[in-house]
Design a protein around this nucleic acid. Structure first.
Lengths: 255, 255
DNA sequence: AGAACGGTTCGGCGGCCGCCGAACCGTTCT
DNA sequence: AGAACGGTTCGGCGGCCGCCGAACCGTTCT
């Protein structure tokens, strides 16, 4: 028997409100946020955030954890995160930055950011392209790992990273800013984690933004045999930060 | 830059209404429906259906085609179908049948039905299980075709069926009734199409329901080396139809 | 030519729901 | 002990939006 229209509608309604959808988008970074942080991020009264969080937790979209006087919430699982990402991808029309501050924020996030637990933005898409060009991933029948890819990723991330448990190893995710796929799934998460551990990628100037370090740029160029230039040309020549060839990826300006 | 909460909310709102979600669920069968058919199926006034169709078409969820005095609508693409399926899967709670008529309908659809353009229900899940057991599909890193699977499907469906264009060859879709995956993607569609062409599967007693024919049961048993019994035990012993071992799949009662 | 038909537009009714501030509660800090 | 803090509950305002029937339009049938 099919799912009833009523329950589908009720589920969709959870995301059909700007406040609730903003909460979910914020939580796509995979972290747990407190109720107060969310109220501040989304720009609503604490009472409103509290009410909406209760709704989302009650519906199972979010999981909560009470610690002392804090209420931490996070997305309840990667299926939820996936469907939110897919909807966001289809919703399309990216917001147009209105202020200089917003345009800085947009530039930083477009360069390199996290998407739930993997890398996105120009960096994420650039890596994905490099993997395909190097024959590490094949896109013939959906995206899959080649033999070469298997050994390449094993060398970089270790054996365990290639053993997916309870979750697809390879998934692609439509990038909001680039409109092209980047690597998600268990391997996408492992890659993100591995690059962080090596210090090749570090937290960026604002939530969700990340930066490719000097070491990371060198290391990846060596491993992938290409300079990893952002495909969309350089950006970020707004006065704060030295616009270099890699500025589009939020690379360190220390060079 | 990230998708704005507003546009995500606006997109989700399209599915957040029982009438619109019912329209989308009906269209998941992949066919084009006229506005009047939809009004009747969903149970609203023609004027209401007309208004909602205009909304959904305007938003890009549906594509329309005007022919003479008819207005045909269908889902605008498989990305849309996929996200609706995913949401429906997460929405979970299948409707509880209230009347005998509804319970018949539920039983027929649970046995075997179409899900957009591929097979679902006990038949769809049973086939998927058989493919995995026979080593035609591997589920190690997400679902993929093995070498054995490649030749098996080529033999059954012909070479072109294995050449996906613009769409993943293999996808799985969470079955609403079975709560387990069935085969979707280009190969799922090709399989459905191929079985129809051979007359192994035919239209069932109501929209979206399908029936496995005698020939189909024999043919699949021969090709898969298993009797394809529904895993949930037999059903449909409601007085209309001879409950056989395959009754759960809507198999012909002509035996 | 007239009737039937599929579909659309419009006005207006009805109801739902997100929002905030005020008051309140338990926890933590000084 | 008192103040600050994170969070919640509640009342009530405000606005949106889905729905229908009536009137209408173009197409098709007889």
């Amino acid at each position: 028997m099919a799912v009833s229209p009523t329950s589908l509608a009720a589920f969709a309604a959870l995301l059909a409100d700007p406040t609730r959808s903003a909460i979910c988008l914020a939580l796509l970074d995979g972290r747990a946020w407190t109720a107060g942080e969310i109220a501040a991020e989304v720009g609503v009264a604490r009472s409103t955030a509290s009410e909406q969080l209760t709704t989302l937790v009650g519906a199972g979209l979010l999981a909560e954890e009470r610690q002392r006087r804090h209420r931490y919430v996070r997305l309840s699982g990667h299926q939820i995160a996936t469907v939110i990402e897919d909807l966001a991808g289809l919703a399309g029309a990216p917001e147009v930055p209105r202020s200089l501050r917003e345009s800085h924020r947009a530039r930083d996030l477009a360069a390199a950011r996290t998407c739930y637990d993997h890398l996105a933005g120009a960096l994420g898409v650039g890596l994905y392209d490099a993997f395909v060009d190097r024959g590490l991933l094949t896109t013939a029948d959906g995206t899959a790992l080649t033999a070469a890819g298997r050994s390449w990723f094993t060398e970089l991330l270790g054996e365990p990273a290639l053993t997916a448990r309870g979750r697809p190893l390879i998934r692609t995710c439509l990038d909001w800013t680039e409109r092209r796929p980047h690597l998600a799934g268990a391997l996408g998460a492992a890659l993100h984690h591995g690059l962080r551990e090596r210090g090749w990628v570090v937290a960026g100037p604002r939530p969700r933004a990340v930066r490719l370090t000097e070491a990371g740029a060198h290391g990846l160029e060596e491993l992938l045999g290409r300079p990893m230039l952002p495909s969309t040309g350089d950006r970020g020549v707004e006065g704060d930060g030295h616009a270099g060839a890699l500025a589009g990826w939020g690379r360190e300006a220390s060079a």
